[in-house]
Nucleic acid binder design. Sequence first.
DNA 1: AACAAACGCAACCGCAAGTGT
DNA 2: CACACTTGCGGTTGCGTTTGT
Length: 270
Amino acid sequence: MGRAPCCSKVGLHRGPWTTREDALLVNYIQKHGEGHWRSLPNKAGLLRCGKSCRLRWLNYLRPDIKRGNITPEEDDLIIRLHSLLGNRWSLIAGRLPGRTDNEIKNYWNSHLSKKTQVRNHENGSKFKKESGGRKRNVSKLSSNRKQKDSEEATTRTKIHAPKARRVSPSSVNISADNSMAGSSSHTGVVDRDSNRSMSHLEADKNIDGDLAWAPHHYLDDLVQDDLSGQDYSPANIDNMLEEMFGEYQQLLNTDNHAQLLDSFVDSLLA
DNA sequence: AACAAACGCAACCGCAAGTGT
DNA sequence: CACACTTGCGGTTGCGTTTGT
């Protein structure tokens, strides 16, 4: 597959956006709407690649972006959704109105991954908790950033890392009203790296599609209230999440999980 | 006050799925 | 069916800011 040349193109601006560039982009999108990112820079008079424009718009300029600190409720929800979905930031972001996948990803990497790591270690071992906030670690004076980062990377907790998948609305087969039956439904976020038959792919598509697009999808049952409603956290959410997560992990931990997933997905589709 | 380490976040990169021809 | 192009995603990097020594 051919790869579209991007920011490597000579003559294109890179790095931080100026207020003028922001204004040009916002003006253009307000007049013509989103999309056609590739041709947008030319039409808008920007010396940026389309990819860069799209990112800038989605992560920063969009009017519905919520700025400011992540609330404790959001914090908690991110942790829960991450435990369920893994690093699928766009899906998680979809449950947090006004938050972008990039923001959540950054927040996770800089705050929550440590937090959960600390939790895990507190539960299971004598992990030495890093002091919160910006504390200098004197014992690390000799270490440089890269080294530290790579060390972190190797120790970072990874629940699972399914490959990214794009799902278009048209590919969603499950009807909007078809709330998925049973709490185990969503554990169908399956390992995409294993070799699977077409039924797997279809099932995956359905599941993801439902997650991403259907108006009354499963997660709405799971997390009924929009965070903006301030009343997130119905009494049974914890139990449901725990139950599903347990089931999900069970699947992942099984040797023949490909086969298990097979029947699991089949049961979902039935 | 100066310096270095740690942090936080915007932006970039590369891959892969969807779509058009 | 095969290929090229577009778009979306998660991972990674670069750099300005903050903090501790």
